[in-house]
Write a protein that binds this DNA or RNA. Structure first.
Length: 556
RNA sequence: GCCCCCAUAGCUCAAUGGAUAGAGCAGCGCUCUUCUAAGGCGAGGAUCUGGGUUCGACUCCUAGUGGGGGCACCA
């Protein structure tokens, strides 16, 4: 049992002794200010009114009732009536030892849960959109947070392999005579198709017609389509690999459409209604808005495809307990309607979690256009630009393979930009800022990790064995390390990777400051403890970066 | 027109209804013969407006203002 549990139990007992009626939750938090201790409770403030005592007076009674708590060195009353707990040096040393293990930060929070997580989900035939990049980064981090919390996680990609985008690409291939197995030619073909479509006229009609024929199963067109899908998908998977994602399952929109249309057709009159020749879900009955699921030609819209998607995924992974779809925030209202329909169609979904996770728009700051793709910034171009910028810096590093390091730094830079703020809020992407690779950034965290690794290597050379000293005076770095499991738990519960990001910056800052003041390998008797502390920081940064999907090189 | 989201320092972001609202960037002053300067130290700088709830409000409610998104056969 950890100090946190000891404190919680002691608090519960103390409040009971004082005859205070409380809700089931004991409010125990990490004070923002480290000088306020390791844990704090506002219980005395909360229950002062009930007892008729002044908050500080009640706090004193609670502290008296607490007695001694294991792992706690000092309990004090502060401010308006907070009770602050300071961990003992022995408890902290124990935590430091635990933090040096690879499992550090893992919990049993979601043991027995099976999470289906759909993210990235791009349109094939065209370059990876920045929105897809954001979705991939957020989705992968959530997958890792769930995994760290003992849930079984299934990563799912749901690429769009049919529809207008694909038709534009197929049209372009036919016009330009492009080789559908060449990713660059494919990109050009799509661009030609898209441009022709926007210009309207005959080309637009041709593409619309082509789209219809693909849906109807035209063999020749579908052969071209499938060749392009294959190329596009291989390219996508290479990018995902660089970003640290590999999917367990790929479900195509074309498959989901057939299944979804069938389900919708069978529920007309129950869940769906016919209206103006189309089949709709009357959202107004649920405080939402009405949406079309089958268009007047009888084809499934995106809505019906998502119904089929749900059916196929949950059918394949029957033990699922939580279902998430990560997409841009503009689809928020859309998913409210689709999820309402899912709950009516699939009774089992009512007992489980089915949710849309919204990601914000990534918009570049004004005037900063990508040099690579004209005025369109793609996911690929951002990664490539960052990689180029990182190369310059990597040349000065100690890494053997500077190109590989530059790639890792580029991934850190973009992921950090996206995961440093609360999910769902728009992301202002300042390219100059991201390229600077300094200060509050992904590379900063990587550099801090590399620094700890270097110190440990040197310690090993000198034959210093890390050993946390139970008598060592607690410092801010050690105390921050001890918070990591709570941070991971909260981030997982709230599905907010940025909680981890914010924490890691704080930890790295505290360690770098410590490093500047304290000579770790000074040959004194305190060295083993300082090395143990460094190792604990190293492992915490490493695991924390892992949760963000950011690689942690040991040499920079 | 209706619905949803957002508003914190010059800029980009934090803050579990709690304590002196934290970082970084930009600008200013320091700091590498010492374990990694992609680092560290110092000073300056902020809760959109009006009401309300609360022992306590950046946080909750309400009325505004400004910005973004969505609202029938696109994805």
């Amino acid at each position: 049992m950890h100090a946190r549990e000891h404190i919680k139990k002691a608090l519960a007992d103390a409040l009971g002794t004082l005859g205070i009626a409380r809700g089931d939750a004991i409010l125990l938090e990490h004070p923002a200010e480290l000088s306020h201790g390791d844990y704090a409770t506002g219980a005395a403030l909360q229950y002062a009114k009930q007892t008729g005592l002044a908050p500080r007076e009640l706090a004193e009674k609670i502290v008296a009732a607490l007695g001694t708590v294991e792992g706690v060195a000092k309990t004090e009353i502060a401010g308006p009536g907070f009770i602050n707990f300071h961990l003992s040096s022995a408890a902290l040393a124990e935590t430091l030892q635990a933090a040096r293990d690879e499992q550090w930060g893992r919990s049993k929070l979601y043991e027995g849960e099976h999470v289906l997580l759909e993210y990235t989900s791009p349109n094939l035939f065209k370059p990876l959109h920045v929105g897809n990049l954001v979705g991939n980064i957020v989705g992968e981090s959530l997958a890792r947070l769930f995994d760290f919390s003992a849930a079984q996680v299934t990563r799912i990609n749901y690429p769009s392999d049919i529809g207008l985008t694909v038709a534009k690409g197929v049209w372009g291939i036919q016009k330009t005579g492009a080789d559908p197995s060449d990713i660059h030619a494919l990109g050009e073909a799509y661009r030609a198709g898209n441009q022709a479509y926007e210009e309207g006229g005959d080309a637009k009609k041709e593409i619309d017609d082509l789209n219809r024929r693909i849906y109807e199963g035209d063999a020749e067109l579908n052969a071209v389509r499938e060749a392009g899908v294959k190329t596009s998908l291989a390219h996508l998977n290479a990018i995902c690999k660089q970003l640290g994602t590999s999917f367990d399952f790929e479900l195509f929109e074309s498959e989901a459409g057939k299944v979804g249309a069938e389900i919708v057709r069978n529920k007309i009159g129950e869940v769906f209604e016919e209206s103006q020749g189309a089949v709709v879900f009357p959202g107004e009955k649920h405080g939402l808005h009405t949406r079309v699921f089958l268009n007047s030609a009888g084809w499934p819209t995106y809505e019906a495809k998502d119904i089929g998607n749900f059916k196929l995924k949950t059918g394949r992974y029957k033990s699922w307990t939580q279902y998430f779809v990560v997409t841009g925030a503009e689809q928020k209202e859309y998913f409210k309607v689709v999820i309402a329909a899912i709950r009516m169609l699939f009774p089992e979904a009512q007992q489980k979690i089915v949710a849309h996770v919204a990601t914000g728009f990534l918009t570049p700051t004004t005037g900063k256009m990508s040099s690579r793709a004209g005025n369109v910034i793609t996911g690929e171009s951002i990664l490539a630009d960052l990689g180029e910028a990182a190369k310059e810096r990597a040349k000065e590093s100690r890494a053997d393979d500077t190109d590989a390091l530059a790639q890792q730094v580029a991934v850190a830079a973009i992921k950090y930009q996206i995961l440093k703020q609360a999910a769902g809020k728009d992301i202002i992407f300042d390219r100059e800022r991201a390229l600077s690779l300094e200060g509050d950034s992904g590379p900063y965290l990587q550099y801090s990790h590399a620094r700890t690794s270097a110190i440990l290597e040197k310690a090993a050379e000198q034959g210093v064995t890390p050993k946390a000293d139970a008598a060592a005076e607690p410092n801010d770095v050690a105390r921050l390390v001890s918070r990591f499991p709570d941070i991971v738990e909260r981030a997982a519960q709230m599905r907010e990777p940025h909680i981890v990001t914010t924490y890691l910056v704080q930890l790295a800052g505290a360690f770098n400051s410590y490093y500047a003041q304290v000579h770790i390998l000074d040959g004194s008797t305190s060295s083993p403890h300082k090395v143990a502390l460094t190792d604990a920081v190293r492992q915490t940064l490493k695991n924390g970066l892992y949760l963000l999907g950011i690689p942690a090189p040991t040499l920079m």
